[in-house]
């Protein structure tokens, strides 16, 4: 009798997000007692978060060093044989980015740092396929939203 009621409530779509979040919450709580092991020979290394900030580096915390096309920065790929020019453009700054980074200490955490600023080479070079997929997820979301908005699938006004 009781079990039947539980199954019935599971068959109601409205209850499902609650059930899901309760299960997720319990698992996340259980995660606190799992011993954490951290591998510090990381695939995509970067300095300690506060290190560059204490050094008053305007690109902190994203400075990976390196001179564009001459000297590779600190980028470590899983398969270096598939990424022969690894780290070569990671230090590139566009003229605007150079201008901004000379005036403020917070360039690395500002919005300028992404487009045409600091090139995240991991995103665009060694893990480029992920970037394509991420943008296609975004594009599909826009396709769906704009289709629904254009076609008024719900009757919004009484006519």
């Amino acid at each position: 009798m009781k079990l039947g009621r539980i199954w019935n409530s599971l068959a109601t779509p409205k209850n499902i997000p609650k059930v899901f979040s309760i299960i997720l919450g319990l698992v996340l709580l259980a995660g606190f007692i799992v011993p954490l092991t951290y591998n510090d020979h990381q695939l995509y290394p970067r300095p300690t978060p506060q290190l560059q900030i204490s050094e008053k580096d305007p690109l902190a915390p994203y400075n990976r060093g390196g001179i564009p096309l001459e000297e590779p920065g600190i980028v470590k790929a899983q398969y270096p044989q598939f990424a022969p020019s690894e780290g070569m453009v990671t230090g590139y700054l566009s003229p605007i980015a150079i201008g901004v980074s000379n005036t403020t200490l917070y360039f690395g955490t500002s919005i300028y740092s992404s487009p045409g600023g600091l090139i995240d080479e991991i995103l665009y070079y060694s893990r480029g396929f992920d970037t394509i997929l991420e943008s296609s997820i975004l594009m599909m979301a826009f396709v769906i939203a704009s289709w629904v908005a254009l076609h008024f699938t719900m009757r919004r006004r009484e006519e």
């Binding site: 790929a77 899983q78 398969y79 598939f82 060694s126 396929f129």
Partner: peptide
């Protein structure tokens, strides 16, 4: 089953 090969795309293989 049989391992047939890889398609490398940078780090994503």
């Amino acid at each position: 089953g049989q391992f047939l090969g890889t398609i490398p795309l940078g780090d994503i293989v």
